[in-house]
Write a protein that binds this DNA or RNA. Structure first.
Lengths: 207, 207
DNA sequence: CATACTGTTGACTGCATGTCAATAGGCGTG
DNA sequence: CACGCCTATTGACATGCAGTCAACAGTATG
């Protein structure tokens, strides 16, 4: 008869446990809407007592906010090449890079943009706005127009709005399959060029 | 001593009561996110017993879905003028009409688009997708390209995606005040023209 | 092997949702 | 005008979830 004591649970480093719970939460919140995911679900998924979740995260809402933060944080893949040459080429390069990123993280991506519900959640809105801004800045730097003269703020606003179309087209491509990658690429390229070389200058004159 | 019996509550026609509750729900769900609105809140706001909500709506979720449905249902304002003339004019007319609609229902509008959270809610997604499709069809009809040749489905997909930019620009204009109405109008007009007269034809050739 | 540190548990509390039998508003009828 | 019926509405109940906390048990250390 073995009196060997087999531990009922393993003790992990705080960071490790936190990550593990967060990973499970990301999966579940990605599949179902907020209200349809209980902390009990997350706890079961992580093989952990429910109370532990409140130990590592203030509340269910706090956990959710971190999930959103993680999901919108683009891996910022190392794009070593700093493109040069005429604007058109830089734009094409940027759009291509965008589509690569979307294609790679497609699954997570659609989960993030999946639902635009009703109801103002300032916190969530702030996180998403920050991510949009980040993406806009990235794009502008890549096409070499970040240091855009007067009214750079307006240009960023335009590119942020352009991001809205990127998301929508991404959904048409990835989730609905209504458009091919080539088609999306064409549209995004033409639209961005129009925006940068035609609309933006005219808008400046209008100020 | 008056023995007059003053009713504790008034008996309403089902449709009437339903509308009343729905109106309160729209207000509350427009202000706070789903989880932060309890059926108790809605009941108090409407001055009825909580149980009545489950009598008229299957569940809190069911109520929410109807709220979303109402909020995305554009009043479909009677635009009597059927525009004619060159495409540019029709586009300008359409964009102008769009911005009028956004400006008028601005408050509700931003509430609807306010938050894009994480998590797939197929029902909500379906409602919003339907609204987007409706808007796209409306726009295409107004510019006179609804009966667009082959690949009309692809054109609708493009216009739906364009709608993504409309929303984003609307937010930059209405809620953040980063752009003026004139600027938004300029951008939307140029982008739509590019899409219709340049990109779409090229895309068709690409098929 | 004993001890201390702390990651982890499980029970407790309050609140929210959904259900259902009982109640009462108010219209139609005698 | 009073009575009675229909049903809109209520209020209590059951279930489940979120947050708190004292106690427990891995586990590293001497």
């Amino acid at each position: 008869m073995s009196t060997e004591t087999v531990p009922r649970w393993r003790r992990l480093e705080p960071d490790e446990r936190r990550e593990q719970i967060l990973a499970c939460a990301i999966r579940l919140f990605g599949e179902r809407p907020y209200a349809a995911v209980s902390t009990t679900d997350v706890a079961r998924e992580a093989g952990v007592a429910r109370g532990l979740i409140n130990h590592y995260f203030d509340s269910k809402r706090g956990l959710y906010l971190e999930v959103v933060q993680r999901m919108v944080t683009v891996p910022k893949a190392g794009r070593a090449k700093v493109p040069t040459g005429p604007l058109r080429e830089r734009v094409e390069f940027s759009v291509d890079w965008l589509l690569d990123a979307i294609g790679a993280h497609g699954k997570t991506w659609i989960a993030v943009l999946g639902t635009e519900g009703v109801g103002n959640d300032p916190e969530v809105e702030r996180i998403l706005a920050e991510a949009d801004e980040q993406a806009a800045v990235n794009l502008l730097k890549t096409v070499g127009m970040y240091d855009a003269e007067p009214e750079g703020e307006q240009l960023r606003a335009l590119v942020r709005a352009y991001g809205g179309m990127v998301k929508a087209l991404g959904r048409e491509w990835i989730t609905h399959g209504n458009l091919t990658r080539e088609q999306v690429q064409l549209v995004l390229t033409e639209q961005l060029i129009t925006l940068l070389v035609d609309t933006f200058p005219r808008m400046q004159r209008q100020n």
